[in-house]
């Protein structure tokens, strides 16, 4: 009996992520969702600019690489052109909540029937650890060497809360992957975000609190603890919007 195997949704290309980086876990959850819904053959993924840029090599479905921040616009074009396909983006916080804020907000406002996997690691990983729109107050990064001073650098952006004021999105949830229990919960949310699209329910975004041990300057275990102790209180987990919750509960 096979107890554990690589999901079909992932290719055999070895992931390049740093040891202990949770990007790998999130990739797996996306691939499992494709497997479980049987949608890999009709899915087109959009890779963004950030550490996950090479996810075009890792996901087994067709993949399009987008310019920094533009993934939701590219996904909009793809979904409009291929309404029967499943289109998702996989984006970091710099990509989604800084340079791509307009694309994020407006694809949500239009209620595009796409799925967004938003990986919030409170830092710019790929470029070597600069302050992100989601870096916490006081957080030390390469470009906030004395800690993020909200008087000059402003406050972090809470994406789920921000988008929840819009009528467009169908589903917004923030999850974490800092423990096996959290991963199970994240899996449920990601699966739901894809199922929503299959069922034509519209814009679904799952924000996943993620770690960057390398640029946080921590061991993988310390990073998981830092996420739990510092990020989760600032970015409360939970469902921020679920248009069809009542309908689904009634079923």
């Amino acid at each position: 009996m096979v107890v554990f195997e690589k999901p079909h949704g992932l290719t055999d290309v070895p992931l390049h992520y740093c040891p202990g980086c949770t990007h790998g876990i999130i990739h797996r959850l996306v691939a499992e969702a494709m497997d479980e819904l049987g949608i890999e053959g009709r899915t087109v993924g959009v890779a963004s600019v950030g550490c996950s840029v090479m996810s075009y090599d890792y996901f087994n479905c067709d993949m399009v690489q987008a310019a920094h921040g533009r993934a939701p616009a590219v996904a909009t074009g793809l979904k409009r052109a291929l309404p029967d396909n499943i289109v998702f983006t996989y984006q970091g916080d710099g990509d989604l909540a800084a340079i791509g804020t307009a694309e994020t907000v407006h694809s949500a406002a239009r209620g595009e029937n796409i799925t967004i996997i938003f990986v919030n690691n409170a830092i710019y990983g790929m470029t070597g650890g600069q302050m992100a729109p989601t870096s916490l107050p006081g957080q030390v990064t390469q470009t906030s060497p004395y800690g993020r001073d909200v008087k000059t650098a402003g406050y972090p952006v809470r994406v789920c809360e921000l988008l929840s004021s819009l009528d467009g999105p169908a589903y917004l949830e923030r999850v974490s992957v800092d423990s096996p229990k959290a991963v199970k919960n994240a899996k449920r949310a990601i699966l739901k975000a894809f199922r929503n699209q299959v069922e034509g329910k519209g814009f679904s975004l799952v924000e996943v609190l993620s770690t960057c041990p390398t640029n946080w300057g921590m061991t993988p275990v310390e990073a998981l603890e830092w996420c739990r102790e510092n990020m989760v209180p600032y970015y409360p987990l939970g469902v921020y919007k679920d248009k069809y919750a009542d309908e689904e509960a009634a079923k």
Binding site: V44, V46, V64, A66, A67, R70, A73, V74, A75, T76, G77, L78, K79, R80, A81, E103
Partner: peptide, 8 residues
Amino acid sequence: NMVYGVAS
């Protein structure tokens, strides 16, 4: 970028 998506 939507054009890029449709063209893709």
